[in-house]
């Protein structure tokens, strides 16, 4: 008997959890709150060696977070929903420790060489002082990406369906696709900036091109791999060609299409950054280049962080769209 229990401790834990009628807040949540308060104390009480601003703001933010975590732990005894951040407690503790270590190595003890290693305060200062320019860059990046991606995805989808459906179109488009498609979109940069009237239109073209290839190939393979039995069934029931394309081929190919759209989004990010470094006057890629020119590394890191948030958000949105459209599928990858 004891052997069985020790082999499967999770099962016994599950039973214990069922006995508790109210789940208690995790102790680690309180520890996380204290860790952030500790980090705040280190920031505020310890004199800076480097010449930095925003020490007070950084300390206040860390202290507020610590306070909030402690509060949610305390109130979690009464309202269990408030203790939900408890699942992130291990992460929060590691982050507080990381912040304290970073602060110590830079602002407090000046152990790491400037300007490559900016202090947390300097990082924060970028957002408080340069946010109008960063917002403007974010806006222009999103706009450029949206134009290029939507254009590339739309053309890619249509050409993929056409390739998969019509042998005549396939005859003409397939060789072009095979030869031109695998070429990285960035290889077209010199030509694109020369051919297009503005660098903005060249950038849209390059992003669209990067999105187009994977979307086309995957849509095509999706349409081509639809079971013929689906067509047999629909034809027997009186379906027209139009119905077979729109209501059979496309829905059946949609899981493939989304793989293509994800791949396209990934390569469109890469082209966006490169295109912005070369040809535009505002954008997160341009900001990277610009801040590097001033040796403003804190600005660069701040920009990278925004870029990461942007890309991650866009991928998340695409996942949401897929989950919505492909709700009929089971066992999908979670993001």
């Amino acid at each position: 008997m004891s052997a069985i229990v020790s082999v499967n401790p999770a099962a016994t834990q599950g039973i214990a959890a069922l006995d508790d009628d109210v789940p208690r807040p995790r102790k680690l949540l309180a520890v996380a709150g204290l860790a952030w308060l500790g980090a705040a104390a280190a920031v505020l009480a310890w004199a800076d060696t480097q010449e930095v601003a925003r020490t007070d703001l950084l300390g206040t933010l860390a202290a507020s977070l610590g306070g909030l975590l402690l509060l949610s732990w305390a109130l979690g005894w009464i309202f269990p929903a408030l203790a939900r951040p408890g699942q992130w407690a291990p992460w929060l503790i590691v982050l507080a420790t990381g912040l304290a270590a970073w602060e110590t190595a830079t602002a407090k003890l000046d152990l790491l060489p400037l300007p490559f290693f900016a202090s947390p305060q300097a990082f924060l200062e970028v957002y408080t002082d340069d946010y109008p320019r960063l917002l403007d860059c974010l806006y222009h990046s999103v706009l450029l990406l949206a134009k290029g991606y939507l254009l590339g995805a739309a053309v890619g989808f249509v050409s993929g369906v056409a390739l998969g459906w019509s042998t005549r179109i396939g005859y003409w488009v397939h060789p072009v696709l095979r030869l031109i498609g695998p070429l990285p979109a960035t290889a077209w940069i010199p030509l694109a900036f020369f051919v297009f009237p503005t660098s903005a239109s060249a950038s849209v073209f390059l992003i669209a091109l990067a999105t187009w290839f994977p979307t086309t190939v995957l849509t095509w393979s999706g349409v081509a791999s639809v079971q013929t039995a689906y067509y047999d069934v629909a034809r027997t029931l009186g379906a027209s060609q139009r119905f077979l394309v729109l209501k059979v081929a496309i829905p059946a190919a949609l899981p493939h299409v989304f793989v293509g759209l994800f791949m396209g989004l990934g390569s469109s990010f890469a082209v966006l950054v490169v295109a912005e470094m070369l040809g535009v006057k505002s954008g997160l890629g341009w900001y990277l280049q610009w801040s590097q020119g001033w040796a403003a590394y804190a600005n660069m890191y701040a920009d990278l962080f925004i870029m990461a948030l942007m890309c991650s958000t866009l991928i998340t949105l695409l996942f949401r769209l897929r989950d919505h459209l492909l709700a009929w599928q089971k066992g999908m990858v979670q993001w």
């Binding site: 079971q227 047999d232 069934v233 034809r235 027997t236 029931l237 009186g238 829905p251 059946a252 009929w328």
Partner: peptide
């Protein structure tokens, strides 16, 4: 050619999984 007045039913249900 196929016509809805004569319908075939296969060994596999061949339902459209997205419907």
């Amino acid at each position: 050619r196929p016509h809805p007045s004569r319908v075939i039913m296969f060994q596999d249900p061949t339902l459209f999984p997205w419907r």
